[in-house]
Amino acid sequence: MKRRRLTKSERFSLRELAERAGVPPRTLRFYIARGLLPGPTRRGRYADYGVEHLRCLQRIQELQAKGYTLGQIAQVLAGSSVRTSALPESVVWRHYPVAEDVVVMVREPSSPWRIQRIRSAVAKLVTDLNGESSTQKESRI
């Protein structure tokens, strides 16, 4: 991926966009088809892409790194106007009373990967709050 300053007016083809962003052309087409990425500014032979596409791709990658699927990213990018329903969505929280005076709350559902991280963070917190005694207990979980 070449890193050089782009001017706002610079335009390039899908293949060039793929090279610059390090995202294969098929993936770009798929993003466009799913409405994540705006289509080319012009249609036909001279279809072109610009710096706004690169920014958008960067945003998608950031959100992917957070664990969002493409469907969820589409919602985020489209703002909160997407998929409004009359009934508010339910939210599930996990409560971890980690000590007499501390409760950690975690919103569900998360990806298993995320849960794993949260668990180890909570385990660490428990250890820190309660000293050595509970270390063994947690490590067996």
Binding site: E89, V91, V92, M105, V126
Partner: peptide, 27 residues
């Protein structure tokens, strides 16, 4: 639940009944 970039609002903290420091899972 619908994904938003907002920070989740915390509900009321439940009263603590569990004596054990082990994590409790209600759901």
């Amino acid at each position: 639940p619908r994904v938003s970039e907002e920070k989740p609002r915390l509900g009321p903290v439940p009263s603590i009944q569990a004596r054990s420091p082990k994590a409790q899972v209600f759901e």
